[in-house]
Amino acid sequence: MISWRAIAAILLVTGPALLAGEIPPDARRSGYAFMGPDTRAMQDDDTANPGMLFVLDGEQLWKKTTGAADKACADCHGDARSSMKGIAARYPAFDKALGRPVTLDQRINLCRADHQQATPLPYESRDLLALSAFVGHQSRGIPITAGDDPQVKPFVDQGRALFMQREGQLNLACTNCHDDNFGKRLAGAPITQGQPTGYPLYRLEWQTLGSIERRLRSCMTGVRAQAYDYGSPELVALQLYLMSRARGLPMETPAVRP
């Protein structure tokens, strides 16, 4: 007789059941794996990777005092190489005071508001990108664990539902491209699995560093949907699901993409 208990045990050790079309964990690959040799070479060489220019700017900002409290990030957090190591790999993370997950960008702005008494930096501003690139860079090579915290489970689920949801005039869901059709091409561009391993990253098309939210918003515009606002609960939930979906893949910040 087949024991149902044994089946339940198997389900438990293999983690949450995959929905139709979802990529099994051992088949998950960073966007890096889909790039040409030139773009890979650019990402691999820190003196050719333009994202590193932003990391250098972020390092300066880390040491600079600002706001009414006249404090620098470094005054409280010390050497980022140890204090910020692995942090980006577990963001978005649950904020107890707010009762919801916050992204790394939001976390940095919370520190600016609460601890530096400074005005929050606008999304996609050079300074916010530089700080999050600098903090994110300290996690390079560290496996992603965001989404493991049981408190964020409902938000991961919300993000997964959004990922599966068809939208826009083209009526396509994220899953239709990034689960069902990765490895193929959309016009000239390779369709990747949409893994969030390298953000903020340098996109050659943008000629600058950009956040994951900018990327998600352009995927939404691409299917002619109304993109969610920067910092909206939907974008945070999507990021959280993408990070949990990339569980175990190493961080690459700052990556380079075509």
Partner: peptide, 8 residues
């Protein structure tokens, strides 16, 4: 402005 230089 930030610059990255690679000289042996």
């Amino acid at each position: 402005m930030a610059a990255l230089i690679n000289v042996p």
